[in-house]
Design a protein around this nucleic acid. Structure first.
Lengths: 234, 234
DNA sequence: CAACCCTGAATTGTTGACAATAAACTCACT
DNA sequence: AGTGAGTTTATTGTCAACAATTCAGGGTTG
């Protein structure tokens, strides 16, 4: 019944809790995102298998799935390494997000049910309240994607949803974790989310798409500024 | 040196010719795309392993990679099946293409080198000639994506290129193979490609994006018309 | 002293056997 | 006769041993 407290398990449909390789995938994924394994670090199969208490079979399968999620790179006969998020890659990611989530917003304006729009507005009010009370830190960041997630799901396009929520989402999470000390633009985000909801309520696909694209484009620019002036690893 | 005769192996970077699982991935992928395994068909691991002369290990890995490419669906403890391309899924795919390739065209207009634009124009002239001589059938269809492929690569965005050329491309190929008896709109496509090149030459990202989006949107509509009036399996 | 080859250790790729789960079939019971 | 539980069978998931390849180190040679 609580719409706002969406767990990771709900968002991600690629985690099989039933099978060992699925559990290992989830565990390794979270470890990589949280920085337990540093960017660029080699993933040694026997050691990891020992660490996660599984055989090399399921572990290899987990690695392959993370390769598909672009969290891990793999070279035949050499091995797997954790990806390093260069500024260049992040900017590329935000261009892809702009394209995909822009389209998602347009489709959401067309297809989203009235009840779902209602929920979305309530979610926004929750964020507004949270930002007023606290100063809007990490929890806000997770919640921010929750907002985006509801719109993506509202598009009704399964392929689009899978691409964004199963694959790219974890890359975004990883990046956000690495740069969580940066105060994100919560006030501007709130305003832009408000405009976005309005466009969806008005059933205006073109406006919704443009607003979403500008929203993400601005986030991209603020990231570029923040990361070119001061290095990530200082 | 021959820019136009791009082979599948060139487009796809996910096929390891060195490793068995890579070869199996490529073989199984082509078999599925070409219809050797019918849509919805169960993929029996022991039988396939026997058929491809490999052990179950590499075969399972191949299946997982095809799952990531969305050519195969997988349910834990039940097994893998070839995807069935419903009209709904195809339309979803074209919406995603519209978003991604639209952005790719915009980026190509910004980043593509003069030499690459030159090559692109030569490729278009080749298509024009081919369409005049013959009546523009399957070869044109493959070449058509080659044109799109050059633009995608010209975007300079590696993530975008991977998503389109490694993952979604094979889904498109599968759909095209299944509906190859439909005469595709080669004349209109040529005109629209011509306009697209012009926009890129003029370094006009907004125009290039809009033209590409309309181009794909029209293709989507013509598919919808063709497949709603007459069923696929008649 | 640097470059090259050769050898060995470590790691990945592959295989076949074993365990666990799900589907199919049989048979009793209502 | 149809439904349901129990059993059987086929298939998937997992494991540990084997083969192939890469990389590092030492030694030799120009």
């Amino acid at each position: 019944m609580n719409d706002s407290s969406t767990q990771v398990a709900d968002i991600d449909s690629s985690s099989d809790t039933k099978t060992l390789s699925g559990q290992t995938t989830a565990a390794l994924r979270e470890a990589i995102i949280k920085g337990v394994f540093a960017p660029g670090e080699k993933l040694n199969e026997p050691k990891l298998a020992e660490q996660f208490q599984v055989s090399r079979g399921p572990l290899r399968e987990a690695i392959r799935r993370l390769v598909a999620m672009r969290l891990v790179r793999h070279v035949p006969h050499v091995g797997a390494t954790v990806v390093t998020l260069e500024l260049e890659s992040i900017l590329e990611l935000y261009d892809v997000r702009e394209a995909l989530e822009g389209k998602a917003a347009a489709l959401a304006a067309e297809n989203m049910s009235e009840e779902d729009i209602e929920k979305l507005r309530k979610l926004l009010e929750l964020h507004r309240k949270h930002t007023q009370d606290n100063e809007g830190e990490y929890m806000q960041t997770e919640g921010d994607f929750d907002f985006h997630y509801q719109i993506i799901k509202g598009s009704g396009n399964q392929l689009l949803t899978d691409q964004l929520c199963d694959e790219l989402y974890h890359l975004i999470r990883m990046f956000r974790f690495q740069t969580s000390r940066f105060k994100s633009r919560s006030n501007r985000a709130l305003i832009e989310h408000e405009q976005l909801i309005y466009a969806i309520e008005q059933r205006d696909p073109e406006l919704a798409e443009m607003l979403m694209r500008k929203h993400i484009s601005r986030a991209k620019n603020s990231i570029r500024k923040a990361l070119t002036s001061q290095s990530l690893s200082d």
